[in-house]
């Protein structure tokens, strides 16, 4: 049982026009097995929240705290956060030319576990997960995200999530740019991992479509750097019908 506690989180970014405050006091608690949808208009700071939690150097945390099972996440380096059990599925996964997927996956697994995985089970696990995500075995020999389509990149993110078994996963617009078939495959992957490992999920999305496949326990509306409203799945339905206008008008 794990808990991610985000308290009064403030973060800023340096821009040519000066320091810009993006997160303005985020409060959120995610426990194992829970799925929290974070929904909000473009530019509200959803992705900044994701990258700040993962420790991207571009964002400076100016106030607040983040604890994972009581451990101070903000004191950890990027790789320490991953080892502690945080996983970020990125909206735009980065290409790493010349580094094969199989080498990358094995290196990451070894780093997370502190020891190399047993070869036989590892090969089997990778194969099974790739099959479930409808990924051709040829992906193993390709460069990480190199020349992958948008859908292939997202499936590769979920593949990593399944193999690295984090405690809490942040999915940053994993649904954007996916057609319905790919969306279903990716969503099934997330549900499978949740069921098998009790993963806690922060599902960041702009659209309600993915919520037809992954049912959230909580929905949070994110506006202007903080959570403006919280509710159950019914809140998503209301957003589907009304859009974000009423939040933007008051923002």
């Amino acid at each position: 049982m794990s808990t991610l506690e985000i308290r009064n989180l403030h973060a800023s970014v340096e821009t040519p026009e000066g320091t810009k405050q993006i997160l303005k006091g985020v409060d959120l608690t995610i426990k194992s097995g829970e799925t929290h949808a974070i929904m909000g208009p473009n530019g509200s700071g959803k992705s900044t929240l994701a990258y700040s939690l993962a420790g991207h150097p571009k964002y400076e945390i100016t106030e607040g705290s983040v604890l994972l099972d009581g451990e101070d996440v903000l004191e950890m380096s990027v790789d320490e956060r991953a080892k502690a059990g945080l996983f970020l599925a990125m909206q735009y996964p980065v290409e790493v030319p010349g580094v094969s997927v199989s080498n990358f996956l094995r290196t990451a697994k070894t780093a997370i576990d502190g020891e190399a995985p047993k070869l036989r089970t590892w090969v089997k696990d990778v194969k099974a997960s790739m099959e479930q995500l409808r990924m051709d075995p040829a992906f193993n020999e390709r460069g990480v995200n190199e020349g992958f389509s948008g859908g292939e990149k997202k499936r590769h993110e979920i593949l990593q999530m399944e193999l690295l078994s984090p405690k809490i996963a942040i999915l940053d617009e994993t649904d954007s740019g996916l057609d319905v078939d790919a969306l279903r495959i990716v969503s099934e992957g997330v549900n499978r991992v949740k069921e098998n490992t009790g993963l806690g999920v922060m599902l960041i999305t702009h659209y309600t479509r993915i919520l037809n496949y992954i049912t959230p326990d909580f929905v949070h509306v994110f506006v202007d750097g903080k959570i403006a409203e919280e509710g159950g799945p019914e809140l998503a339905e209301r957003l589907e019908a009304e859009g974000y206008d009423r939040f933007l008008a008051s923002a």
Binding site: G55, D79, A82, M90, V96, F104, T107, A108, I112
Partner: peptide
């Protein structure tokens, strides 16, 4: 690239 790899637990 470094950030991506490190976010998977890989050291700098």
């Amino acid at each position: 690239q470094t950030f991506y790899l490190r976010s998977r637990g890989i050291s700098e």
